[in-house]
Design a binder for these strands. Sequence first.
DNA 1: TAGATTGTTAATCGATTAACAATC
DNA 2: TAGATTGTTAATCGATTAACAATC
Lengths: 215, 215
Amino acid sequence: MARANHRLTKIPEMAIRRLSVYTRCLQQLEEDGVKTISSQELAERFSLNSAQVRKDLAYFGEFGVRGIGYYVAGLKAELQRILGLDREWSVALVGLGNLGSALFHYKGFARQGFRIAVVIDDDPAKIGREIESVPIVGSRDMAREIKARAVQIAIVAVPPEAAQTVTEQLVAAGIKAVLNFAPTRLRVGREVRLKNVDLSIELETLSFYLAKGAR
Amino acid sequence: MARANHRLTKIPEMAIRRLSVYTRCLQQLEEDGVKTISSQELAERFSLNSAQVRKDLAYFGEFGVRGIGYYVAGLKAELQRILGLDREWSVALVGLGNLGSALFHYKGFARQGFRIAVVIDDDPAKIGREIESVPIVGSRDMAREIKARAVQIAIVAVPPEAAQTVTEQLVAAGIKAVLNFAPTRLRVGREVRLKNVDLSIELETLSFYLAKGAR
DNA sequence: TAGATTGTTAATCGATTAACAATC
DNA sequence: TAGATTGTTAATCGATTAACAATC
């Protein structure tokens, strides 16, 4: 029964993350000249259950062909569309310290259509300059630049004590989603999508298992 | 009934992560001079359920006092011990490019007792030098340095094509846990704890919600 | 003692997986 | 048609939450 229940159901966050992973795999498969793939084969690559792969996809539509599997190129295109990876997103990078610079040069972002359109940093030695043709502006000019460049996503990589203030300015300037690397819990309104990346917590879970092993 | 069921039960990964979060909060509370806190108060700070806080703690023991709550200093110390944060861990940082440098200078790691004891990079311009008194060695000398410095944790921040090879060398040298920032799925034996940090996937989930909002 | 809050059990909720009719 | 694999329903599993006796 081909019904579009995928409009109504709430989609688990983990399903979205897996979609991301499938997409990258499909991209590789396409480059390798693979034409079709079954849910079973796809699942094996990530030690998942084939039913989970099919269910993740079923949230969004019917992309497969019974007896065949999925056409790699077609499914990749569908997933890219669903994830918003079929277009370019203008991103503002806030903070050009060590982490900010690393993120600026990180190749993975650009590959999926995320283009850093403006860098924001209040260091007088940096304001007014460019980095790889991307302008560096002070927070004073932040709102103007964000609007002018239709930036919707901000990557926050400033010291923790500056993060909340700068985020409020970003939201006031019209930013719709924030990826936060500052080790602080940010408070934003519900109209803004916030994702925290906590670098310390990952090390701490590792040390838990090491410490446990030693006990 | 004070039984140590916490020795047998399998502990959810998410519970460990929350323990990390509680610990940091308790640290702050201690600095602020707060003596006791209830599961309810603690839960509210993270929009969690108080039963969840109590259950997370109950995996490891009985730390609270009925009618009172938890003594901040005592609970903090217990959780630090459980997470292995009551001691110093020697860490090897592999790859000193943009991301590696950022991670090297990242203050959050050192704060919780993770000390970068050696940097590994094969750039001839870097080998043999030091960065903030930490030696930089080539992968040729990796095994020797890791053993000499009793390093158990490695942070991998090399280009994706080098990640698998270097990880195998790390494991051969006796590394017990790997935090991987390279955008590649690493394959390691089951005796090694592996945690992947995928920077792209976070942006991709954000763009999913933005794209959905626009549909 | 009366009030507060824990630790734990039982109920609920949600996500994963097995099973299978539909169908290419 | 026979074989393969989907999309979906129903069963299972695990994690979250409500409820409450125990007890400070």
